[in-house]
Design a protein around this nucleic acid. Sequence first.
DNA 1: TCCAAACCCTTGGATGTCCTAGTATATTGC
DNA 2: GCAATATACTAGGACATCCAAGGGTTTGGA
Lengths: 169, 169
Amino acid sequence: MGTPLPRDPIADAQRNWERHGWGDVAAPMAAITAIMRTQQILLARIETVLKPFGLTFARYELLALLSFARSGALPMNKASALLQVHPTSVTNAVDRLEKAALVARSPHPTDGRTTLIELTAEGRTLAKKATAALNAEVFGQSGFGPDDVDHLIRVLGTFRRDAGDFTEE
Amino acid sequence: MGTPLPRDPIADAQRNWERHGWGDVAAPMAAITAIMRTQQILLARIETVLKPFGLTFARYELLALLSFARSGALPMNKASALLQVHPTSVTNAVDRLEKAALVARSPHPTDGRTTLIELTAEGRTLAKKATAALNAEVFGQSGFGPDDVDHLIRVLGTFRRDAGDFTEE
DNA sequence: TCCAAACCCTTGGATGTCCTAGTATATTGC
DNA sequence: GCAATATACTAGGACATCCAAGGGTTTGGA
């Protein structure tokens, strides 16, 4: 956004919390705020890498999901559930991907309510290229050490399970 | 959003990455995806708590920031820098907060380019109430253990520093 | 059998974020 | 002192997310 600040604004906020008598929740507040900010930074990096492909992160996620589906097609409600976003967000993403000829809508063979999203050949190709770029430029250079990665996966996994994302394990 | 999934979709994605020969970046990919999803969950919790106050997280953050400023007023560019969001986002938030009479714009005494944002009495009161609610219902029940909180603060702090958020330490 | 309840997708509206200008004010350099 | 550059805020546009509502399809119980 701009030049670096001289001091960590989240650490400052934590000190402010403590100074106002909320010391018991200051640390979790700081951790949560840090997660929010980290997400913002990561999203910006991802979007930068995807821009040359004409993709946003939301659209990329859908392409990637479809590319792993055995048949290359998924019902929209399934995609919504797996991506953990509102159905209208999927509608939005599919609209734009369809306009770019990266996916196609097709009626479900047996359930008239359901619409299947299917990857086109270009969609599959683009997904592959975009994944390679993300792997090289974002995931491969996350800045997190291997131990930190393991810790994040474990801690956030527990958090997500407790939040009701999934039941396994 | 809906009912819990039977399996962790991020763990599945990680397995897919490994299966496609991207094992070297599968773990960081999973960690980053988990951060994105965790942020989404936390934001939803926060927004739920703030809704009764007529606030969104973006507006609350601005109110909270102002409430910690000694004079209760800050230049917009300062707020933008401290909140680490684009200046236009601050303009947007101030527009709405001003319409709700929670903050007021005033000209900077010496710099004609600058606009100061000032907390109104209602703004200060509401910020206090909203903070109490967030402390009780979100930060005080984060679900992260004390050790995990410390670890998150440390790891994400390093990440943010390396990303150029701040220079201290 | 048949109608109500459940489910699926889309439309429309409210918010937030960013980017790209555009306008106004300050500062700098010659 | 004046022109060129930098800084501060705002307007308009593109996207994403969610919620509320509406129309079509299935399912299930009376």
